[in-house]
Design a binder for these strands. Sequence first.
DNA 1: TATGAATGAGGGTTCATTCAT
DNA 2: CATGAATGAACCCTCATTCAT
Lengths: 197, 197, 197, 197
Amino acid sequence: MEKDTKTHIITVALQLFEEKGLNKVSLNEVIKASGLSKGAFYHHFKDKKELTSTCIHYYWEDMSNNVVKLPIQDMSLKDALSMILQQFDEAIKRINEGNDNFFEMYLNMLYSIRNDEKILSMSRNYFKKFKQKLSDCIKKEIERGIIREDVDPENTALLITTCTEGHGLLSSANIYDSPNQKLEIIYDQIYKSITTK
Amino acid sequence: MEKDTKTHIITVALQLFEEKGLNKVSLNEVIKASGLSKGAFYHHFKDKKELTSTCIHYYWEDMSNNVVKLPIQDMSLKDALSMILQQFDEAIKRINEGNDNFFEMYLNMLYSIRNDEKILSMSRNYFKKFKQKLSDCIKKEIERGIIREDVDPENTALLITTCTEGHGLLSSANIYDSPNQKLEIIYDQIYKSITTK
Amino acid sequence: MEKDTKTHIITVALQLFEEKGLNKVSLNEVIKASGLSKGAFYHHFKDKKELTSTCIHYYWEDMSNNVVKLPIQDMSLKDALSMILQQFDEAIKRINEGNDNFFEMYLNMLYSIRNDEKILSMSRNYFKKFKQKLSDCIKKEIERGIIREDVDPENTALLITTCTEGHGLLSSANIYDSPNQKLEIIYDQIYKSITTK
Amino acid sequence: MEKDTKTHIITVALQLFEEKGLNKVSLNEVIKASGLSKGAFYHHFKDKKELTSTCIHYYWEDMSNNVVKLPIQDMSLKDALSMILQQFDEAIKRINEGNDNFFEMYLNMLYSIRNDEKILSMSRNYFKKFKQKLSDCIKKEIERGIIREDVDPENTALLITTCTEGHGLLSSANIYDSPNQKLEIIYDQIYKSITTK
DNA sequence: TATGAATGAGGGTTCATTCAT
DNA sequence: CATGAATGAACCCTCATTCAT
């Protein structure tokens, strides 16, 4: 029962946060939307910070899992990049076309990283895993003779990771008109430069 | 006189915003720090939003100018990347070692882009110029025979831009331990892949 | 204008504090009773503590002044004690017969002494002055041959001060039925023991 | 078992009250510290008032017993006063050097007297007993020829009681620098004035 | 007897904004 | 142009108490 209420509050809060932006939602709104009383809220959470931080954990875990589940290491690099492209396409669509405030939530999460040990380690883990999967994928492609032998898998994976993140940021921020096309170009550029002729 | 007062307020506000984070500074603080009265403030600004958005303009313009001033197009790509590396190094140091809240200001700016026409166009312009300079630089390097002829300057410039931005974000967020070294690897990776053997 | 509002708030608050007891009065009540808005209150006071502490200062100053004004040093000890007796009689009546909570205010003041430099020094000053006046009075009585020469004025003044305070406390606390009569006995006891036969 | 739980709650509460001051301790704290549940608490006490008033009873009873146990009536007045002096010394030390809030508890008790029949009668009883013991002691000293025959034991006992209480208050409130020495002077002053030459 | 989730009135405080002077 | 007292909605949070289990 207790667990249910807490989860309920988190769910409601996350929805509000994504709709209006984490900083624009007051505790009163969360409480009202959750149909509970003030006291009930404070029975489950120490204070507002605990709620927001918990929500960010959930949000981040959700994002991480989506990536972790991707079977990048078992695919060809071409297919892997295609899949990431598609994933980002959907995310960007959600951000730009939806009415929600997913982007502010994302920025808040980034901001929280510097003040929240747990989120920091989650984030590092996420990027580490993402890079590792790419790296593994590249190694196999080298073995298969698709990627040149002199290519460093680690460094290439790092490059892909950062430019994907940078592209995601600039797209979310609405700076690129046709984000998806841009990412395709970027991936092509990298892909061409490491494959055997 | 009027202009001076306004500029004074903006300067004071920007400093506070960078110190404590845009959302953590109240109008009262700005007014107090600027040594003015409430009425004086409202004489120069319609409301708080006008102040914050003006401040973000200034902040962004400042950042832009720093990039625009870089004579990237007249340098070798190697030198250009070195210079950007150094610039980022300083910025990251400021963010991670300083007591200020530069990063939150940056995130707020990114967030504002989606709600503020003017900032959006400034941002787009900034990234366009940055990319253009890199592109010009690359073209010249191709002519000089340093970069291969089959390399597309536009796309390569796009790649450099996005991975620089992505790397900046991840470094600011404290995700990379040795950010500077990481950026060097990334640039090396790109540079090697486009230069003639 | 500013001074007036602040004084007004203090007056209203003091009245409420004396009626209901300092700990039983909320800021909302003070604000409501003063006819002002929350903002107005916080314009004049940093927080509730500043209000209560200011009120206690006023309260204490008021009490002190009543004592300081007494021309004890120019009277015979007999008359001086009579006068103090009468003063206490009135105070006790106010505490016991009135509807107010003067006593709790007094206790709160006593409690504040230990946490408030200013009140501490006010209090020490008050008791010092009271003792000094009594001491001076006794010295003159010795010169007049009314009080014995071997009597120490300082120590006797200390005795009178402490037993007056002790009696005041026990009377306020409702422990003595006929407080006034008790104080008379106490004073008589002291008086007899120091006068010449 | 029930009795034990109730006593346990009271013990825990008293400790908290003396540490932090009666008004600064919430029921939640008491419940948490006692290791019980909310329901369990309300099984034993009607409401918070019942707890505080019960605690004050205990506190007061404790103080009373300490005095009642003193074999004042069987001692010489000199020794009796010495003993009281020592008792007060310890109490004052506890108040001024300790980190606890014994003094606030004491003031709260005094305040409660006026609103709580039971505490009122306990208090009256306490002071009555204290005075009686002193009075008996003095009577015996008169018989022994140590105190003059014209001294009224009742009135002298009253004087000692009130000045002890007054001194205790002023010392607790931190108004006297060297409280112990002051009390010695006061007692000396009284003692000298009633003994035979 | 005992649990602890839920209640909700009320607490103190902040803050952007207005407006008479 | 400038002042700063006043506004009041909204904020986060505390707490004694109730009640279904």
